[in-house]
Design a protein around this nucleic acid. Structure first.
Lengths: 197, 197
DNA sequence: AGTATTTCTTGCCTTTTGTCAAGTGATTCT
DNA sequence: AGAATCACTTGACAAAAGGCAAGAAATACT
């Protein structure tokens, strides 16, 4: 990867930042510069259970998921992350406690990461980073609430159709069982649903 | 209400802050001092649809709910707020856009509020306030995720039992129909469930 | 290429939840 | 107090979703 391509890639993060918070481009570029490139192979883990997360990741390309094991030892996919989004396990990362969840690449992924200490230092020193940090928390919080609202008071079929309409990449790249637990249905039910739709 | 009682009340907010973030007591008291007392009668609204929210509220006593109308014009209670928690509609408050939701007192409520401009000024000027602000966002974000996880992959009966175990005040004070839409079931189903449990 | 494993589909039957409608009980309003 | 409204319960039936097991299809392994 040559220098030009490297810069091109980084621009996607700068654009993402500018989209999330109204700050001067120079400030956005400074934030971008504090991230470090990272690549993940298919099925590789960004985070495992019992480890304190130290990755705040901008996912440039690829699909990831966060999952955990329920009381019956079943894998439950809690969320998917699509490209051009921030990926982190908030409890472990911000509260500095061991994770109960795994974050895994569903497809090969590329992106840029920053550690907790780095993020925190910038958060206190740079007003623009502060605004960015808060904007991301607000954005993801809202997304989580939306997801709540979209799951409750909807049938499995409606939930599936909604996912298909809003995040088709997930349907396309993730195996059925990941999607089933994410939607809160059994594999059989999801298999039947998608035949009908 | 005399001065001593006033101070006593305020102490609950200071204690709440100290519980959420590790800062010196003096800083917590300074944050507390920037809030203003507020009271709400039963069924009174803190926020209505189409208004830009300007309340970031510490709920000292009482029970509140946030709800909206779905596509069929049905009231859906999205969340309840119990005492000793922060109450706000994140989308409207932080993004300065008209609210789609209503926030209403289910029982008489008391608490302390701060406006967006006030909060924002402190967020940028006072490091302790900054940490507090972020800690609240993180805390509430985690609560939202927990709720997601607790709703999906659980039967209505399990969801009800979980609510009963974790927030009995809600079962006690909120009418059945609020709880039903919150749990994502019909009134009839909830009525049958609670007879069994 | 052939075997093993995982992933997905399908059939049969059960359980859960919803729909609609009627009825009881409680609360509010004048 | 009486009427009106609201909150909750219950019954009969329908629809949605799950459990289990068998088999087909795809993928991984050697």
């Amino acid at each position: 990867m040559d220098v030009l391509e490297q810069m091109n890639n980084r621009e996607s993060l700068t654009d993402f930042i500018l989209n999330v918070v109204k700050i001067p481009r120079d400030d956005a570029e400074e934030i971008t510069a504090s991230f470090h490139p990272i690549e993940l192979k298919e099925r590789e883990f960004l985070l495992k259970e019992k480890v304190v997360s130290d990755d705040y990741l901008y996912l440039e390309s690829g699909l990831m998921r966060i999952f955990l094991y329920d009381l019956n030892g079943e894998e439950i996919t809690i969320d998917f992350f699509t490209e051009n989004n921030i990926v982190f396990e908030i409890t472990s990362f911000f509260n500095r406690v061991p994770s109960e969840a795994y974050i895994q690449a569903v497809t090969p992924c590329t992106g840029y990461r920053i550690s907790y200490d780095e993020l925190n230092a910038h958060f206190h020193n740079k007003p623009a980073f502060r605004d960015f940090g808060r904007a991301i928390l607000v954005k993801e919080f809202i997304a989580s609430q939306r997801r709540n609202y979209g799951m409750i008071n909807r049938t499995a079929k409606e939930r599936y159709q909604n996912l298909l309409a809003t995040k088709p990449q997930i349907i396309q790249y993730a195996p059925l069982k990941y999607i089933a637990s994410y939607l809160g249905v059994t594999d059989s039910t999801l298999s039947r649903l998608r035949k009908k739709v």
